[in-house]
């Protein structure tokens, strides 16, 4: 552990370009995946929060279950679709960061949809009558809920990002862990572990943890500022 800590510090301080490439790719892939998953997931979550229809609870059960999708399964499904012999093979996306973004997006969209649905439904419970009094349309209602719930939703996005950036099973299958092309933090950790270079693997893990801490700390401070203004 001490070795790993020392090494982690050294790696960061040395500004090793390979390391930064991996860190930046990790962030880029997972941030874009989170962004796309938020657009899709928040639309689904807010729509479910304001809608009542037959089969709604079945939809909720499915989405909640999809939160537990094993990354490897997602990886396999995306692989089978993006493979040259698969239906989307002509796109030539396998073994690219785009493939990794697609896999992570699929993985975390249900998380964002399910968690945001819960938050927005609670919020809607409070606002619904006022909105009806305004004669607000359903879209207007969804937009207002998303805006007023934005600070709570930040935590939802963070949960999605956390799952995406920490995930290895899917990205290693669809990305291939190709050096300088699709190698991210987690696949690098898996690689170093398989090389038996446990201190280096652990050091990379600590850098990942540090990133997670910084992102969480940022979101936390945004939220507490918002809470002080009674906006969250």
């Amino acid at each position: 552990m001490g070795d790993a800590l020392h090494l982690a510090g050294q790696l960061v301080l040395s500004g090793d370009p390979d390391l930064w490439e991996i860190v930046l790719l990790s962030l880029r892939v997972s941030l874009i995946a989170t962004l796309i998953a938020c657009i899709i997931g928040l639309a689904i979550g807010s729509l479910l929060a304001v809608s009542r229809f037959r089969g709604r609870s079945a939809v909720l059960v499915v989405i909640n279950a999809l939160m537990g999708l094993p990354p490897v399964v997602v990886g396999l499904i995306v692989y089978l679709n993006l493979s040259r012999s698969g239906p989307l093979g002509f796109l030539g996306l396998l073994y690219t960061p785009t493939a990794m973004i697609i896999a992570q997006t699929i993985l975390i969209t249900p998380i964002i949809a399910a968690l945001s649905r819960q938050i927005l439904e609670d919020l809607n419970h409070e606002y619904a009558e006022q909105f009806r009094s305004f004669g607000l349309s359903r879209i207007g209602q969804m937009k207002a809920l998303l805006w007023d719930g934005r600070f709570a939703l930040l935590t939802v996005a963070l949960a999605g990002f956390g799952r995406a950036v920490a995930e290895v099973g899917a990205v290693i299958i669809v990305g291939g862990n190709i050096d300088h092309l699709t190698r991210v933090m987690t696949t690098a950790i898996a690689l170093e572990t398989s090389k038996g270079d446990l201190p280096l693997a652990l050091a990379l893990g600590m850098i990942l943890l540090t990133i997670a801490l910084v992102v969480n700390g940022f979101v936390q401070s945004v939220r507490s500022t918002a809470t002080r203004a009674a906006y969250a």
């Binding site: 606002y127 009558e129 009094s133 305004f134 004669g135 007023d148 906006y231």
Partner: peptide
């Protein structure tokens, strides 16, 4: 109707203010 309600307004016993 929904549309007719736009020409009306209501102040609730417990005001519902937006988080804004």
């Amino acid at each position: 109707t929904e549309e007719a309600r736009k020409a009306q307004a209501m102040v609730f016993q417990k005001p519902v203010l937006l988080r804004r």
